[in-house]
Every structure is written in C-alpha cells, then in structure tokens.
Amino acid sequence: MSQTLNIQNLHASVDGNEILKGLDLEVPKGEVHAIMGPNGSGKSTLSKVLAGHEDYEVTDGQVMMDGIDLMDLEIDERSREGLFLAFQYPHEIPGVSNANFLRAALQARLPKGEEIDAVGFYKEMYAKMDALSMDRKFTGRAVNDGFSGGEKKRNEILQMMMLEPSYAILDETDSGLDIDALKIVAEGVNRMRCPERGFLVITHYQRLLDYIVPDVVHVLFDGKIIKTGGKELAHELEEKGYDWLTNELVAV
C-alpha cells in the first residue's frame, strides 16, 4: 500500500462556486510539503475539503490516504485514521477544559470499553506542553477560550503532538504569530518530523518556511497547482511576488 496522501484532479465548490479546479498533489510520508498562494487561491478550501467540512462539495477527483479513500469517511473517522488539521482559526469551546478535550479525542481512538490511563495521559501532556513553553494552567482552561492568537496556535500544535497523526495539515499556522511564537510552533512541528509522518504546510508567507524547511514547495493559484519546486521556490516567490508566476500563467 502506498504511504502517501495522494490528491488527484480534485474539484470542490462552496455554494455552487468552484474553488478547487483539478488539483493534483502527493505528499509521501516523511516529507514536508508547503503550499503557497495568494489570497483566494483555494488554500483554506483545500484544508477544509481534506478534513471533510460539509459546506464544501467535492464534485470530482479523489483523495487517497495510505490507500484509503478519504471521501468515504466522516470527518471524525478521517481524524482517527490519522489526518490532522491545525486550524487557521481554532474554535473556542467554553466550559470544556483543554485536558478533558484532549482526553475525549484520545478516548475516541480506543476500542469500546477501554479507558485512558489518566496518570500516563497527564504525564505525556505536561511533557508536550513544556516543549511548547505552555503554562500548566492551560490544562484547566477552557479550549481556546480567551486565548491570544499565539496561544491558540500553540494549542493546535499541542493537539497535533498528542494525537500523533500520519498526515498533518497546517492551515496558515503562522498567521497572527510574533516571531518568538513562530519559532516555538516551528520547533514543535520540526520535532514531529519523522519517516512515518507527512506534513502539508499551507502559508501565505515565506517566513514560516525559514523555520519549517520544506522538502517541496507548491504554488496554488485559482484552484490548481501551477508550479512545484524545492525550498528555493519559496524565496523566489518572496522576492518576485506572486505576480511573477500568475502573469506568466496568463501569458501562456
């Protein structure tokens, strides 16, 4: 079975407007792929479609994760199969503590009747929070409720570290982060890079990729990948701007 996240000819629309228009992409395990693109190119749509958001209708194409057709699975099943989405705008869940939330997510992965070992759970969570320089008080605080932008993003990375996905999609995780928070988040991600895990890092800015150095960079424009290259492509984009590619595209 192929150990990749494989997207072929993906078409998706929201409210009848086609946003993804035949997107092809393959992220093998062990690699970090970055997707860059101007606003409105379909970056966030791609992350929502992969996670299974119901507002997005997949009209054509397929997505295979380690040989499993993602589109056959419910949102929560995709997560349990090993897909993780770090949200651009993580939701607040008042009254539900971070610890209880993570426990529920881990519990959902256990066979019926099996209970999480509470001591081991807290030990692991504390260790991972330390790695992200998160204060212990966040365990008792309601999920993202009253968190700053940087705290929310760090919390997303904590969830990723706890759930240990096979494929992680980071949707503009750098937005709203100052440089210190960005470094911490990037370090958390880098620590998780391993041959058993693939990353899809969606970003508008090259800055994040100085800290999470990608193996491959894709440029998304108007719902399609228009260019793929190495990490130097990100720098090129930063220098020349997206117009460099999009004008070229229009000229062709």
């Binding site: 949102i75 929560d76 869940i93 939330f101």
Partner: peptide
C-alpha cells in the same frame, strides 16, 4: 466540525459542547 476534526463523533461532540456550556 472542530471537535469532529479531532476524531470525536458528532453526537458526542454535541454532548461535550452542551456540557461545557452548562459547566
């Protein structure tokens, strides 16, 4: 959607959110 994206089934997600609401 947020809870489901963490692997929690929809029905349980509703319960967790409601419980949090009262909590």
């Amino acid at each position: 959607f947020y809870l489901q994206a963490r692997g929690i089934p929809a029905e349980q997600a509703r319960q967790i959110i409601s419980l949090g609401f009262l909590n």
